Simulated assay, not measured.
Amino acid sequence: MSFSERLIAWYRNNKRDLPWRNTNNAYLIWLSEIILQQTRVEQGLPYYLRFADAYPDVKSFANASEDQILKMWQGLGYYSRGRNMLKTAKVVQNEFNGVFPVAYADLITLTGIGEYTAAAISSFSSNEAKAVVDGNVYRVIARYFGVATPINSTSGKKEFQAIADNLLNRDNAGEHNQAMIEFGALQCKPKNPDCPVCPFQSSCYAYQHQKTNELPVKLKKLKIRERFFYFFIIHNKEEILIKRRDNNDIWAGLHDLPSIEFKERTGLEMVFSDPNFNQWFNDKSVIQKTSEEIKHVLTHQRLYARFVHIENFNLNAIEKNGWLKIKKDNLSDYGMPKLIFEYLKNFLN
Score class of each variant (00 low, 15 high):
residue 276 N to G: 11
residue 156 G to I: 01
residue 274 D to N: 15
residue 153 S to T: 09
residue 314 N to T: 10
residue 184 G to H: 06
residue 216 P to Q: 07
residue 280 W to H: 10
residue 56 P to F: 08
residue 29 I to D: 05
residue 70 L to G: 05
residue 335 G to E: 01
residue 111 T to P: 10
residue 20 W to P: 08
residue 80 S to P: 02
residue 104 Y to R: 09
residue 99 V to Q: 14
residue 205 Y to A: 08
residue 102 V to N: 13
residue 30 W to V: 13
residue 131 A to D: 06
residue 10 W to L: 10
residue 145 F to M: 10
residue 296 H to I: 03
residue 265 R to F: 04
residue 285 S to W: 04
residue 332 S to N: 11
residue 322 G to A: 10
residue 15 K to I: 02
residue 264 E to W: 02
residue 340 I to W: 06
residue 165 D to S: 05
residue 46 P to G: 11
residue 153 S to H: 07
residue 6 R to G: 00
residue 254 L to D: 09
residue 181 I to C: 11
residue 255 H to F: 15
residue 249 D to L: 00
residue 52 A to D: 01
residue 271 V to G: 01
residue 247 N to K: 13
residue 295 K to Q: 11
residue 12 R to C: 07
residue 8 I to R: 11
residue 296 H to P: 00
residue 75 G to L: 04
residue 24 N to I: 08
residue 45 L to A: 12
residue 179 A to H: 00
residue 202 S to W: 00
residue 260 I to E: 10
residue 155 S to R: 11
residue 239 E to A: 00
residue 25 N to W: 10
residue 227 R to F: 04
residue 189 K to S: 12
residue 332 S to G: 00
residue 56 P to V: 10
residue 87 K to I: 15
residue 329 D to M: 03
residue 137 V to E: 04
residue 194 D to E: 11
residue 139 R to P: 13
residue 121 I to A: 02
residue 347 F to W: 13
residue 122 S to F: 09
residue 343 Y to H: 15
residue 206 A to G: 02
residue 88 T to R: 06
residue 186 L to I: 12
residue 109 T to I: 00
residue 92 V to F: 12
residue 292 E to L: 06
residue 330 N to F: 04
residue 328 K to S: 06
residue 84 N to Y: 00
residue 230 Y to K: 05
residue 110 L to H: 04
residue 27 Y to Q: 07
residue 70 L to P: 00
residue 336 M to W: 01
residue 303 L to R: 07
residue 24 N to D: 14
residue 238 E to L: 03
residue 17 D to R: 07
residue 271 V to S: 04
residue 63 N to Y: 03
residue 305 A to E: 03
residue 8 I to Y: 07
residue 345 K to Q: 13
residue 225 R to A: 11
residue 303 L to F: 10
residue 315 L to M: 09
residue 310 I to P: 13
residue 284 K to F: 14
residue 100 F to Y: 07
residue 46 P to W: 05
residue 114 G to A: 12
residue 162 A to R: 08
residue 189 K to V: 12
residue 80 S to R: 15
residue 206 A to K: 11
residue 265 R to Q: 14
residue 120 A to G: 13
residue 202 S to G: 00
residue 86 L to W: 14
residue 16 R to N: 04
residue 278 N to E: 09
residue 58 V to G: 08
residue 315 L to H: 11
residue 43 Q to D: 09
residue 8 I to T: 14
residue 194 D to C: 04
residue 240 I to C: 05
residue 7 L to G: 02
residue 192 N to H: 09
